[in-house]
């Protein structure tokens, strides 16, 4: 080989070496950028969620001490019910056991605590879970929560629909015996929407991730009336 060919060869090796180095540097920078994109995406998610959470809320009348439930009755033992107004299993529960529980509460045999949560906002196109749970707060203000709950489940909209409009909820409430314009404006203004978020967050913090969920004296039991009466000590129903 001539020395000229050797030099050419050497220059080529060096060029290739430089190209490889550059490519490697590019690769490192692209990787760093990609990781940065993912990290920033995660932070954006956290930021969006944080900004969506409101920190202050007003609890309705008859709320529990920590504000995450609505109390009916004043019996010695406490039955807590986590419910979502668009959840079909909650309607089944309400139809099979709701009236018995409400009678026990009305007779002050139990303290019945309703926790209206908004787990299923995506099951309607209008955040029906949040709106209806907020309306339950308004019904508690009016002192007619059990009647309201019953009327709402008797007219439960199907999952995937727009749900009941605020006006329809108000009409149902009127038929269930709620009077006065306070309720109407309370529903229309979404007065208790921040409170519903509080109830929902508190439920999750307690480990409740589905509805209906029932606690008797602070212990979770199967969401069926026989299991509840058994946990209460097998006393007569109703």
């Amino acid at each position: 080989m001539s020395s000229r060919a050797n030099k050419k060869q050497a220059a080529k090796v060096v060029r290739e070496q430089i190209a490889r180095e550059r490519a490697r540097a590019r690769r490192v920078w692209v990787s760093i950028a990609a990781v940065a994109v993912l990290v920033i995406a995660g932070l954006v998610g956290w930021g969006v969620y944080s900004s969506q959470r409101s920190s202050s809320f007003t609890a309705p009348a008859h709320a529990t001490a920590n504000g995450d439930g609505l109390v009916v009755g004043a019996g010695p033992k406490t039955v807590e019910l986590y419910l979502d107004f668009i959840c079909p299993a909650c309607r089944n529960f309400e139809e099979s056991g709701g009236s018995s529980l409400n009678q026990m509460a009305a007779a002050n045999k139990i303290k019945l605590v309703y926790h209206p949560v908004a787990f299923l906002d995506r099951a309607s196109t209008t955040q029906y879970s949040t709106r209806s749970a907020a309306a339950a707060g308004c019904a508690s203000d009016a002192g007619k929560l059990p009647e309201f709950v019953q009327a709402m489940y008797a007219n439960q909209p199907p999952e995937g629909s727009a749900g009941l409009s605020n006006d329809q909820i108000i009409q149902l409430a009127h038929r269930a015996g709620i009077t006065g314009s306070g309720f109407d404006t309370c529903v229309r203004d979404g007065k208790y929407r921040p409170w519903v978020q509080h109830v929902t967050d508190a439920a999750v913090s307690r480990g409740v991730t589905g509805t209906p969920t029932v606690f008797v004296e602070g212990k979770q039991v199967e969401a069926r009336l026989p299991a509840i009466t058994q946990a209460l000590g097998g006393g007569p129903v109703g």
Partner: peptide, 18 residues
């Protein structure tokens, strides 16, 4: 879980874009 749940959909979308 709240932090993870809020961050995850955005990370998944970003992975999808990459």
């Amino acid at each position: 879980a709240r932090v993870v749940g809020a961050a995850l959909p955005f990370v998944e979308l970003a992975l999808g874009v990459l």
